[in-house]
Design a protein around this nucleic acid. Structure first.
Length: 547
RNA sequence: AGGGGUGUCGCCAAGCGGUAAGGCACCAGACUUUGACUCUGGCAUUUCGUAGGUUCAAAUCCUGCCACCCCUGCCA
């Protein structure tokens, strides 16, 4: 096996496993729970898992981790598939954890037979109370030493629907005194009388993540199960499951730090709230950090992937500056996007010495080797952008003012001779003359001008409504981290506090003109990628007007 | 002494005992038919959280300390 240069610690582990012969073919998986839309944070995991597949000529499954019927929905599985496709990844197998419910049940029975699991009758509160604290050991359940026969009988009856939700659970018998809370006889199967999006009403008992996930990995032959840092404490339990269940495949869990971006809320719960309360138009609102949101914003998939690669993979908690993402998006747009001219705040230009009209050919992208051109109509009446003309220009202003000359991009050099004002004193139109010999491409005028401005033909242009977005969501005080954290705590005791914090969190709705904008057409069909390619361009280069 | 992690430039991040890569941001110039882009130069040398130790040599090994993150769901 030839050495492959590693670019992060995970690949280093893989290289060692390959070299030692522990692993022959690398197999990873991306395991989202279908309970929300994918966001840029998921893209990092996606790129990691699918990136490894590509780099090592391995395999990667898309597996929906749908072990909790009350939280999951079919709507989300479709959106997730679509987002992954948009990013350009191809999964080897498309699976549902729920496809393994029979197998998982059998494994649970196996654990019972080995004396490694028992049915516990305590309530959720009782279990919680007996779990102990971070510094004190927990108490063993009075049901901990039931016989194998009794456990088997009870577990079957749980499955057969003889008990209500919460009445009984199956617990792993490990160690109530473990300093690792996850090892204090964790619940591995619970009763939930709810219809499942995939298995319908077949089951009323469902496996917990800690039992299900390692089994899913083992069943599929996953060699490296990559997850985020908060699961580090679960690794001993993960290993316990694959060991005690005596799986042929013994996958290993590797943890990495999740992606955080400055001023960007990644909390699914918060994002869902914005959608539910109609603060945004939907999951694909261009202000959202969701994959479909940033797609609609005009980010190329290639840039998103490039970003994920360049930020690296490590175990240190970090927060990447939004500017980094932006710069990479700009880099890709600059390299790949076809340019168009746009005027967002039109001022009419009359070229007094020009008659008739013509069609000019303007290069689409000066950075591309293969030259392509677009046809642009030119006539004596044009619009230029409001920011390209000033009545009283500051020093070093290179664009138009009375007496000044600029080049109309891809066309001629013009000189502003006069400014016509309306009755309110606003600039109505500019009277200019053009230099016939200065035509772009074969300029024989010998003139040099500092400024180049974009323009559109006043009588022949495309109107589109452009909206400027401040990209991701920023909270007024920038306390996204706090919100993300409170959001999590709110699942526990601090619900009221968290709700209040969320109420107080205001969405910054400041529209910001960016170097390279991400403009979105109103009422754009979110499914239509082609439209994006048309409207995405460089600064000042948008396909015309909202006059 | 609960347990598990992490600490290298403003932000990411290489480095794996031999004398601090790279990117983003920033600063200064040049160039330019998008004031974009591109290009050039600058940007951790009493320095790698900190205090000691081992060594000819330490960000890299050892010890103590400090800071931050995660763990007491029948969520994932």
């Amino acid at each position: 096996m030839e050495e492959i240069k590693t670019s992060n610690f995970i690949e280093e582990i893989i290289n060692k496993d390959l070299a030692s012969g522990k692993v022959k073919k690398v197999y990873t998986r991306f395991p989202p729970e279908p309970n929300g839309y994918l966001h840029i944070g998921h893209a990092k995991s996606l790129c990691l898992n699918f990136g490894i597949k590509q780099k090592y000529d391995g395999k990667c499954n898309l597996r929906f981790d749908d072990t909790n019927p009350v939280k999951e929905d079919e709507e989300y599985v479709e959106s997730i598939k679509e987002d992954i496709k948009w990013l350009g990844f191809k999964w080897d197998k498309l699976l549902f954890a729920s496809d393994y419910f029979d197998l998982m049940f059998d494994y649970a029975v196996k654990l019972i037979k080995k004396g490694k699991a028992y049915v516990c009758d305590m309530s959720a509160e009782e279990i919680s109370k007996n779990r102990g604290t971070l510094t004190e050991a927990g108490k063993e359940s009075p049901y901990r030493n039931r016989s194998v026969e009794e456990n088997l009988d009870l577990f079957m009856r749980m499955k057969n629907g003889e008990f209500k939700d919460g009445e009984k659970v199956l617990r792993a018998k490990i160690d109530m005194a473990s300093p690792n809370m996850n090892m204090r006889d964790p619940v591995i199967y619970r009763i939930v009388h709810a219809s499942h999006h995939n298995t319908g009403d077949k089951w009323c008992v469902y496996p917990m993540y800690d039992l299900a996930h390692p089994l899913e990995d083992a069943i599929e032959g996953i060699t490296h199960s990559i997850c985020t840092l908060e699961f580090e404490d679960h690794r001993p339990l993960y290993d316990w499951v694959v060991r005690e269940c005596e799986c042929e495949c013994q996958p290993q869990q590797i943890e990495f730090a999740r992606l955080n971006i400055t001023d960007t809320v990644m909390s699914k719960r918060f994002l869902k709230r914005l959608v539910d309360e109609k603060t945004v138009e939907g999951w694909d609102d261009p202000r959202m950090p969701t994959i479909c949101g940033i797609r609609r914003r005009g980010y190329p998939a290639s840039a998103v992937k490039d970003f994920c690669e360049r930020i690296g993979v490590a175990k240190a908690n970090s927060e990447v500056e939004f500017a980094y993402l932006e710069s990479i998006v700009r880099e890709h747009l600059n390299r790949d996007a076809d340019r168009v001219m746009a005027v967002t705040n039109p001022i009419k230009v009359i070229i007094t010495n020009y008659t008739g009209s013509e069609v000019l050919q303007i290069e689409n992208n000066p950075n591309k080797e293969e030259k392509t051109y677009r046809n642009v109509s030119f006539s004596a009446e044009l619009y230029i952008d409001g920011s390209d003309f000033m009545v009283s220009p500051p020093p070093k202003y290179h664009r138009l003012y009375k007496g000044a000359s600029v080049r109309l991009k891809g066309a001629y050099i013009i000189t502003c001779n006069d400014v016509v004002f309306d009755k309110d004193g606003n600039v109505k139109e500019l009277l200019c003359t053009y230099v016939p010999e200065s035509k772009s491409g074969n300029d024989t005028s010998g003139l040099k001008v500092k400024g180049v401005v974009q323009w559109v033909d006043a009588n022949n242009h495309t109107k589109v409504t452009l909206r400027r977005f401040k990209p991701l969501l920023g909270l007024n005080n920038g306390e996204t981290d706090y919100i993300n954290r409170v959001d999590k705590n709110s699942m526990r005791q601090e619900t009221a506090l968290a709700e209040k914090a969320l109420d107080n969190a205001q969405i910054e709705d400041k529209f910001q003109f960016m170097r390279i904008g991400y403009f979105v057409k109103d009422k754009l069909s979110t499914k239509d990628n082609a439209v994006f390619n048309e409207i995405v361009g460089l600064k000042d280069s948008f396909n015309k007007t909202n006059c």
